[in-house]
């Protein structure tokens, strides 16, 4: 029921990069460490049998997001600092500590164990098992994720494209680039 030592090492790596992202005072360092965090997360997704998610996270999470953040500090400012870490904001620590403890005490005992075959998401005969059994028959695609994304839930993906288009329009308006002179 336990994962390999490599997965546990990866979890420690993810946790360490997340904490250093939060504490680094220099914004450029924080962005670079956040890129490493995204990459660690992408590798961890492959351990959790989600290669499609892992590839998207590596390309978009670690790639595009990092580039957007770097472009932003290139166009604005990178505050110079002589200290390595931020001062710890204790009221914030208490607030999010309470948040984490509430989650760990109330939600965690209710969750089914990781990877259990009787987990409601996995064992549901009408939903998950339907897609696993009928994907090839219905769509002719062997990758069930692609089949759901592009065929069964095609309109969802279309709505996602509309969201991305709206975001692009919003960025152009905010940056006053909507007119091509």
């Amino acid at each position: 029921m336990t994962m390999s030592w490599f997965a546990y090492t990866l979890m420690v790596f993810i946790l360490l990069t997340a904490v250093t992202t939060a504490l680094f005072r220099d914004v450029l360092s924080a962005i670079v460490v956040f890129g490493a965090y995204s990459l660690g997360m992408a590798i961890f997704y492959t351990f959790l049998l989600a290669p499609d998610v892992a590839m998207t996270e590596a390309a978009i999470g670690a790639g595009v997001t990092t580039i957007l953040l770097l472009l932003t500090i290139a166009r604005t400012t990178r505050p110079s600092t002589d200290r390595l870490f931020e001062r710890v904001h204790w009221p914030g620590v208490v607030a999010v500590g309470a948040f984490a403890i509430v989650l760990l005490w109330t939600v965690l005992p209710e969750m089914v164990a990781v990877g259990a075959e009787d987990a409601p998401v996995w064992a549901n005969a009408d939903v998950t098992q339907y897609y696993i059994q009928h994907t090839y028959d219905d769509t002719g695609v062997q990758n069930a994720v692609t089949a759901v994304l592009a065929a069964y839930r095609g309109f969802d993906t279309f709505g996602e494209a509309v969201v991305v288009f709206a975001a692009g329009v919003a960025v152009l308006i905010v940056l006053k680039r909507e007119v091509f002179a």
Partner: peptide, 8 residues
């Protein structure tokens, strides 16, 4: 196999 729906 893992459930495809949360992945999507």
């Amino acid at each position: 196999v893992a459930s495809p729906l949360p992945h999507v």
